[in-house]
Design a protein around this nucleic acid. Structure first.
Ligand SMILES: [Mn+2]
Ligand SMILES: [Mn+2]
Ligand SMILES: [Mn+2]
Ligand SMILES: [Mn+2]
Lengths: 232, 232
DNA sequence: TTAAAAGTTTAGACTCATCTAAATTATATG
DNA sequence: CATATAATTTAGATGAGTCTAAACTTTTAA
């Protein structure tokens, strides 16, 4: 009933929904590297199965059921990534592509085992939150790309995009990993490179890399933490 | 090119070839639970790809290329089974069905990792030999089912069929595991039950279970060992 | 040695996921 | 506000893998 193909569609729609723009057939087609026509016909099928709502010519939204499946696939993906890195010692730039396949063939029982063996982790190797067994997924506040962040402020890396192995290896060499504190020393104007500081090292990095790194200003983050503690 | 479906066909043919009978389309159909017509058309495709040799109405044989792929799939299957049992602590009656899926989606890199983490094991949880990375597979000499074995002789369990979870759980409860020594005390005539001794315990087991347990006579096995040592 | 039974292949159809090209609808611009 | 452009859907086709029913070959056994 829910094929690997359908799981990938639901996951794609879920991720596109996180953005502010409405989810169009062409945005899904772009993301999954399929023709628009292919996506339209699959969307009709998903709508019939009540996994999405579709208004012709005006975009797609996941139903509750569709979202539940999407989150479950994301949980499998991220747990598998971490498992491959921690237990099987694969390099962090290789785990994404492997997980993209395995996420469709891991039973609930294996998932629970992996979760247990890893000690119920909260984030994957790229800093992305792992949804809980019951489908709750942590939202990250004040999450900007390094490309958008202000010069001079203290920043902490929340996560990095896991799609491009070459950029991941580049980041790894410079120690640009989730949890690490950095700051921007200078931005070349008109969409140019950035000078950054990581620990005591200074680096010059291309904008394309900065766009793949998600950060929060440390002061803001501390404020958020305080707020949380007060309400608890 | 080599789809999961094709991998399953090649694996099925490989296992059927171990028997003395020639491999027919209907034997493959029976094993994979498909119609004869489906198998015939797939066999034609495999023949075109030089993975099997097929003489119409007279059966199928793997080519060298086809066999190489089959052995590789079996290696993945058995390593995954052992991994699921040892590292993820799944029960031994559950690992086969999981491995049946995962065997098609495990990269060479993950395979090598699993092999390393497990310490380059020789046999899967059911006692079946794990082919080496280069495709060598250990042949077991004097391998009979417990149903065929002689009353009174000292026997050792080589392996058990991994397909039926219920029978596996039954065996587990009685300690009928690979490596364990047993003997048959009595066979009810006309295909009836068996009385066996395992350690100091006596059990009465159905023929259907005895047919799923592969054993060797211990004396013979020792002789084989001697022969090996002399030739080394 | 030949006819019935058993086994195998062929013919034709179906579903899933995909494509390209054509038609339709929405949107942007003069 | 009318039309040109862009986005989306429909139409029709394809390949993989499967099915049932019919045709054909081989084997069995009268
Ligand atoms: Mn996927
Ligand atoms: Mn990731
Ligand atoms: Mn399989
Ligand atoms: Mn096994």
């Amino acid at each position: 009933m829910i094929s690997p193909t359908i799981e990938d569609y639901l996951k794609a729609i879920f991720k596109l929904q996180k953005g502010k723009e409405k989810v169009t057939t062409s945005s899904i087609a772009e993301r999954l590297q399929l023709s628009n026509a292919t996506v339209t016909s699959m969307i009709k099928k998903l709508a019939k199965q009540k996994l999405v709502k579709h208004v012709s010519y005006h975009g797609v939204v996941l139903t509750e059921g569709g979202e539940k499946i999407a989150v479950k696939v994301i949980r499998r993906h991220r747990l598998v990534e971490l498992f491959l890195k921690e237990i099987l010692e694969l390099e962090w730039d290789k785990v994404h592509d492997e997980a993209e396949q395995l996420e469709h063939y891991i039973s609930d029982e294996i998932m629970d085992s992996i979760d247990r063996v890893l000690g119920y982790p909260k984030a994957d190797p790229h800093g992305d939150p792992i949804p809980t067994r019951s489908g709750d997924i942590e939202k990250v506040e004040d999450n900007y790309t390094l490309a958008e962040a202000e010069v001079g402020k203290k920043l902490v890396i929340n996560s990095v995009s896991d799609g491009d192995p070459n950029k991941l290896r580049f980041m790894f060499k410079l120690g640009l990993l989730p949890g690490v504190s950095i700051s921007i020393k200078n931005k070349t104007p008109f969409e140019g490179d950035l000078d950054i500081k990581v620990g005591s090292s200074h680096y010059h990095i291309p904008l394309a890399v900065a766009k793949k790194i998600y950060v929060t200003q440390i002061e803001r983050r501390l404020k958020e933490e305080e707020k949380k503690h007060l309400t608890v």
